[in-house]
Nucleic acid binder design. Structure first.
Length: 323
DNA sequence: TGGGTATGTCCAC
DNA sequence: TGGACCTACCCAT
């Protein structure tokens, strides 16, 4: 989840359902003291850069959130809420039985972040037309921040970063980040400039948010397989055309991920394979989390290594890794 | 019930 | 390089 595509989807949710609305901002858990700085104010803009989410308020302050490894947003609404990120219409919360919101998962509209069921309890009330009557739902679990409008609610759990910051700090954060294909029109050149200067292995460079923003462990492994590149090659040893192709691949995968909500990294699937991939994320990748299984292309056993304390998956044959 | 795991980042050593 | 942070799910017992 919390790779770049997820955060762009979250930013989209806020843009569609919260921007322009007066928000009650609270911290049910009690650990977000800055809530008082923005409580009762209006969100004027929502956007993402890499894995960072920025919500601008009419106070001039910005709520800056990084989900880290555990974080997740849960959304629910009491009105018809469109989902422009997918072709199907829908609302943010899904009700079942007596209004209990259940069944959300990493890809759902209701919950974006670390994989978990949406934990919004609607109580014992009846529903009306499929929508819970008692809005807003009671917060469940460790909700760091709740943002509530008249008809929509967003609950944040487990973020690594959750701060109210001023414009200077926002600029600093953004300046430290590498290009994001969905944000930076001239991103390719910035990417080439930055990655071409580092002699670190390409498997490390792609994870460096100062070089390129938004790539995480899944996209890293999958992009290197798609490019048939060894993770151990020095980034600055790669031809410019190879680096340009990596940038283009990331731009395409990110756009697809934002559109579908899933990290679809396999091309050319048959209809049945596509259905399997959509239904089961274990069938969705070339190498990620497939250690010990045969490569989908050549049958060689997929290898797991630890690079910088993160799990790295690759096919030694397809990616030309020796020894 | 308890241990293992997770798509991330920072900091101390 | 290893641990801390921090939350919840999944599985074995």
């Amino acid at each position: 989840m919390p790779e770049g595509h997820s955060v762009h989807r979250i930013a989209g949710q806020f843009a569609r359902h919260f921007v322009g609305k007066t928000c009650q901002v609270s911290s049910p858990q009690g650990r977000f003291g800055d809530a008082r700085l923005i409580d009762g104010h209006t969100i004027t803009r929502s956007y993402a850069v890499g894995k960072h989410l920025f919500l601008e308020f009419d106070t001039g302050d910005t709520l800056h959130v990084h989900l880290g490894i555990y974080g997740a947003w849960d959304f629910a609404g009491n009105v018809n809420l469109d989902d422009t990120a997918s072709s199907a219409g829908g609302r943010m919360g899904q009700t079942a039985g007596k209004g209990t919101v259940v069944g959300a998962h990493e890809d759902s509209l209701a919950s974006i972040g670390a994989p978990r069921r949406t934990r919004l309890r609607m109580g014992e009330s009846e529903t009306h037309g499929g929508y819970p009557v008692d809005f807003p739902p009671e917060p469940v679990g460790q909700v760091r921040v709740r943002i509530l409008t008249a008809d929509a609610v967003a609950d944040l759990r487990g973020p690594t970063v959750c701060d109210v910051v001023g414009p200077d700090r926002v600029a600093d954060i953004r300046n430290e980040l590498g290009p994001d294909p969905l944000v930076d029109r001239k991103g390719e050149q910035r990417f080439l400039d930055r990655i071409g200067r580092t002699g670190t292995p390409i498997g490390r460079a792609l994870m460096n948010q100062k070089i390129v923003a938004g790539i995480g462990n899944v996209y890293r492994a999958e992009m290197l397989f798609r490019a048939r590149l060894s993770p151990y090659l020095a980034a600055n040893s790669l031809p410019a055309e190879t680096l340009r192709a990596l940038w283009a691949d990331w731009a395409g995968l990110l756009a697809l991920g934002v559109k579908t909500g899933q990290m679809m990294t396999m091309d050319g699937l048959t209809a049945s394979q596509k259905r399997a991939a959509l239904a089961n994320r274990d069938d969705r990748h070339w190498v990620y989390r497939r250690a010990g299984q045969p490569c989908r292309v050549c049958g060689t056993t997929i290898v797991l290594d630890i690079m910088e304390a993160r799990k790295l998956y690759f096919c030694p044959t397809c990616q030309g890794v020796t020894a």
